[in-house]
Design a protein around this nucleic acid. Structure first.
Lengths: 334, 334
DNA sequence: CTGAAAGCGCTTACAG
DNA sequence: CTGAAAGCGCTTACAG
């Protein structure tokens, strides 16, 4: 049998409402009563029923994590678990629960999100991806439901957190340039991802300054962020002998590229630089190439913090106000 | 204002109980009424409140995912997102929700799990790790709360799903042996993980048969499952020149090992073989070394299926009965 | 400082 | 085939 507030009340010789107030640490209850009730609660192993609490409170203290349509590139990218870790930490700090979205296709995913929201299961959402024309995103914007997106979408105001992708790409490009690698290509992947567009922009801006504009032919896109894609692209590139500096938009792709270079023994011909969600090999000589640490864990942690802030402040103003935070990246040099 | 069963009832000219029965597709309600009520539900965009439903039903149709204490080796290992994907798919198929456990240390993790269970937030749990003397595991065993563990723990009966680690390790070892690589070492990592012990056993069994037993000195353990650990171990090993075949217990470690070999140009000296959660590079020549595909996604999918089965059949028998499933691994050869 | 009562939005015997 | 009523386990005005 499960212990409810009633049992505790009876055992403590008080009313259920008093027990409820003790749980909430309500100031109007005397210390003596509080202590007595708490002792009973411990003794009886009382735990509040969240369903009842959430029903009456009309809020759940839980956040939904919105995943994209299932695909290898997302699930294999270290960004995903790293972000989850950050969200998890922040959730734990604030005693929030985390509900995962499910569903393969757009229909079932949207359906699940609607159930979560209308069913009062979540107070807010965190999007772990940012793609244009996403039906779920459109839906929550319409509904004005609280959410934070990791990444950004041009032209639509929303709460978001992101890396300063233009900036890190600029710094990356400048680094190659300063090192003397001045025949530069950008290897991206999925060009529909905003961050790829932004990183391209960064590279372009720097090369513009150096009067050596990046042409469209120097931008490699149109493939998923996977190691073997980078590997094959690089095998093509090596044939041309056109570049010596490579800015690579994704770290898995970079790994494939690096493998190709290593296999062909051309480490001295190419310098590559990429972007990673965390610092991979501290204090180790196992480092192959420079990269920017994007601190994805902290990024996601902040996403959660921002969301909680938004949920808590809700309804206190008529005008719209959005949070847009940028997380800096650090250059890590072998 | 949110639409409840009452509003629907009023609009349809029926009682709330009738609406409830329509939602449940209760056979005693006439088709006419059902259709009328459903039309109204659509029109009004009615969505059931899950908190109310779960409160009265005393079950949540949600499963808790139990994560280990936060550490790099877990979050960086591709097993984690792969397993999550499998669980997610099965959850979606069965209309189950997924709640993530949170907390850094053992205390706060156990605390959260207790809240989940006693607070009636979850009907069952899936453990994404299997370590001896885990306080959460002990707790749920004591409570007889439904759970499935991915992996296994010797000597304690519980519902579990796992790869046949001894078998894949045997096959891996036999493969090396047949290829002529007969000076064999095992590179593990975290020897407290059951699957490492099992894989060691597999290697030992095969070498025993070939009258060339694996000595303790040929087993490398005592480090986390990370690339640079494999890299450094391998650099040590290469100095000794004692082996030509390497069975590597974890794929991240294997990657580090491979890098070391590649850097030193010793690809012809060593043959390695490892175990991966998914098939990495289908139809591609970007494959470095043979490995066993452990099908972690399907494994986790099955974990969820088994759990749902257990939850549904609960209380129908007095005697204890546990499910123990093994997923086969496939050798993938470059 | 504490209690009795109403209500959150559902479901499910019990009647009819 | 359908409805009125009780109840799931909480919280929170309203009294006192």
């Amino acid at each position: 049998m499960t212990i409810t507030i009633k049992e505790v009340a009876k055992a403590a010789g008080v009313a259920p409402s008093t027990v409820s107030r003790v749980i909430a640490d309500h100031p109007s209850i005397s210390e003596k009563t509080k202590q007595r009730v708490r002792a009973i609660m411990d003794e009886l192993h009382y735990y509040p029923n969240y369903n009842a609490r959430q029903l009456v409170n009309q809020r759940s203290k839980t956040v939904g994590i919105v995943l994209p349509e299932a695909n290898d590139a997302f699930y294999q990218n270290p960004f995903f678990p790293t972000a989850l870790r950050g969200i998890n930490e922040a959730a734990s700090r604030h005693q929030y629960s985390l509900l995962l979205s499910t569903g393969d296709d757009d229909i079932s995913r949207l359906d699940h999100i609607k159930k979560m929201i209308y069913g009062k299961q979540v107070d807010g959402l965190i999007f772990l991806y940012a793609t244009q024309n996403d039906p779920i995103l459109s839906f929550v914007i319409d509904e004005q439901f609280p959410f934070v997106i990791i990444g950004n979408i041009d032209g639509i105001p929303m709460n978001s957190i992101d890396n300063d992708n233009i900036r890190v790409a600029k710094e990356a490009t400048e680094y190659l340039w300063q090192q003397g690698y001045q025949r530069i290509a950008f290897i991206g992947g999925d060009e529909k991802q905003q961050f790829i567009q932004q990183r391209i922009k960064g590279v372009q801006q720097v090369l513009q300054v150096h009067h050596q504009p990046l042409s469209d032919a120097d931008i490699y896109n149109g493939f998923p962020f996977l190691e073997n894609e980078g590997y094959h692209i690089m095998k093509q590139i090596m044939k041309t002998n056109r570049y010596n500096g490579l800015v690579i938009g994704d770290q898995l792709v970079a790994q494939g590229v690096y493998h190709a270079i290593l296999e062909y023994g051309l480490l001295n011909e190419y310098q590559l630089i990429t972007f990673k969600p965390y610092e991979v090999y501290q204090n180790s000589d196992y480092i192959h190439y420079p990269y920017f640490n994007l601190h994805s864990q902290q990024l996601a942690d902040r996403a959660m913090e921002i969301l909680i802030e938004i949920i808590s402040n809700k309804s206190d103003s008529k005008h719209e106000r959005f949070v847009y935070e940028l997380i800096a990246g650090d250059l890590v040099i072998p």
